[in-house]
Design a protein around this nucleic acid. Structure first.
Length: 475
RNA sequence: GACCCCAUCGUCUAGAGGCCUAGGACACCAGCCUUUCACGUUGGUAACACGGGUUCGAAUCCCGUUGGGGUCGCCA
């Protein structure tokens, strides 16, 4: 195989959605696997719907996903003149012709064809018509003179050999009345000029490929190899669209997913390598191929993404995760984090990340290291009985003994807690749970003796007394 | 409507004629671990859409049915 060049060619009419992200990932992996290039082309020829903002979002989304492209992104609209040039070349060679049909005529044709059970399309009435018949004042479109007989074949790398009878295909428009190129023409010309060797894109383009093939053939160009990957459906099995549950990648970022988890998840959605589930990006580059891309559509499953995310969260470095959650906690606090608090977060991160499924979870669960907690319902339920009986005294006794420890450190505190609870005739949990509630404001947290060490003896004492105070004033 | 594609547990998938009384992962259920929650671990429920062929033998090949999806624009 000569130089592999793939491309991702989104139209900037919205954010980079999840289906596009996977297409980009597959194209990127394929190029990297073969030591080739991965190019980006923005298909902005629809001037009305393309926006700068969408272009920025796409760049941002790809960067966040870690999919770097080679060279500058190609802006398709800038190449309109070249596209038109090709259309005129075809015209000059007699492989295309001018058509003066009105929209009404076209609509009529479609109706008629549908009624007769034929494919809906243009009937070719200007194919061989004398140009002198051209109605005045109508700007013609240029249509490809497509073959009438035989069939057009696509040897798809994913779907296998797919063919259609040419009688099913009509003469497509290459150049609009205003002289601008259509999508079909633009893609073909750009893919050709950019030396794209492999076009990897969504299944929804499979039938378009026949038409594109006809343009390649007319120009005498060698077509690239195609690989049409199945679409992603929503949880209900319907096509995932922007209206129907397809979120932009930044939405997943905002929900607290890590890009590496996203990559792993998207990779497994439609591609497999035996029973392997956890696949690093390096591994993916080494393994990726088109042969193992499945042919059937798949559904997006948050649960699996979350589970993968939990895995990568546990693998992520503590400093990176602190950086991730710091702004979120600062938002909540309404002030910058103190060095002391950042230090606590860093020390506590190992215990924290073990329990999180998303960066959001993580930020929520970590907040108590930075701020004095408020007490959730379950925590209150544990704390309230304390003031009624001896509970508070017992814990207070433990705390002052812990305070006298030569080192206020996890294992020493735990050892003390074990002996102390035995002495006091209670279970370890009877000591640990109220402490957890008082210190963290919640019934779930990292190991409480670890939390105590990180918080420090003084802070523990303070938090415990303010918890008691809080209970006395509310209960 | 025409054409094209697809069809294994709820979901993602392994499976390229005998290794399949169908494997893994997520989710779910039960147990273990345990100061909570997670993690981890053990076990469990759960699928070859249906009907015909081909073959000594089919989840795997062929045909049909059904179901799902996609495309039919002077959008991309």
């Amino acid at each position: 195989m000569s130089q592999v060049i793939t491309r991702f060619a989104p139209s900037p009419t919205g954010y980079l959605h999840i289906g596009g992200a996977r297409t980009a990932l597959f194209s990127w992996l394929f190029a990297r696997h073969h030591g080739g290039q991965f190019k980006l082309r923005i298909e902005d020829t629809d001037r009305a719907r393309s926006t700068e903002d969408a272009i920025a979002k796409i760049f941002e989304g790809l960067k966040w996903l870690g999919l770097d492209w080679d060279g500058e992104a190609v802006m398709q609209f800038a190449r309109a003149a070249r596209h038109a040039e090709v259309a005129h070349e075809l015209l000059a060679q007699g492989k295309a012709y001018r058509c003066y049909c009105s929209q009404e005529e076209l609509a009529e044709m479609r109706e008629k064809a549908k009624a007769e059970g034929r494919p809906m399309g243009y009937d070719g009435r200007w194919r061989n018509r004398d140009p002198n018949d051209a109605p005045a004042g109508v700007a013609p479109v240029i249509r490809l003179m497509a073959p009438k007989d035989g069939e057009t074949v696509v040897a798809d790398l994913v779907q296998g050999e797919v063919k259609v009878a040419n009688s099913q295909l009509d003469d497509m428009v290459l150049l609009r009345g205003d002289g601008t190129p259509t999508y079909m023409l633009s893609v073909v010309v750009d893919d050709h000029d950019m030396n794209i060797s492999h076009v990897i894109r969504g299944d929804d383009h499979l039938t378009n490929t026949f038409r594109q093939m006809q343009i390649y053939n007319s120009m005498g160009w060698a077509a690239p190899d195609f690989g049409h990957i199945p679409l992603i459906h929503g949880p209900d099995g319907a096509k995932l669209s922007k209206r129907h549950g397809a979120l932009g990648v930044e939405a997943y970022r905002d929900m607290g997913f890590l890009p590496e988890a996203m990559r792993n998840y998207l990779l497994r959605l439609g591609w497999s390598h035996g029973d392997d589930e956890i696949i690093s990006t390096e591994q993916a580059v080494a393994w990726f191929n088109l042969e193992n891309v499945g042919r059937s559509p798949s559904r997006f499953d948050m649960n699996k993404l979350s589970s993968l995310n939990g895995h990568y969260l546990r693998e992520a470095g503590d400093a990176r995760l602190v950086d991730e959650i710091a702004p979120k906690i600062e938002d909540k606090l309404g002030r910058p984090l103190l060095p002391l608090e950042t230090e606590r977060l860093t020390k506590g991160m190992a215990g924290l990340k073990e329990r999180a499924k998303s960066v959001l979870d993580l930020a929520g669960a970590a907040a108590f290291y930075a701020e004095r907690p408020s007490f959730d319902a379950k925590a209150q339920k544990i704390l309230i009985p304390l003031t009624l009986g001896e509970g508070a005294l017992i814990i207070d006794g433990f705390l002052s003994r812990a305070y006298d420890l030569p080192a206020f450190e996890r294992s020493a505190i735990e050892a003390l807690a074990r002996s102390y609870s035995e002495e006091a005739g209670c279970k370890l949990g009877d000591l640990a749970q109220p402490l957890r509630a008082a210190l963290t404001g919640s019934t779930t947290s990292p190991p409480i003796f670890e939390v105590m060490e990180i918080l420090g003896a003084l802070e523990c004492q303070n938090r415990f007394s303010s918890a008691l105070q809080f209970i006395q004033t509310t209960a």
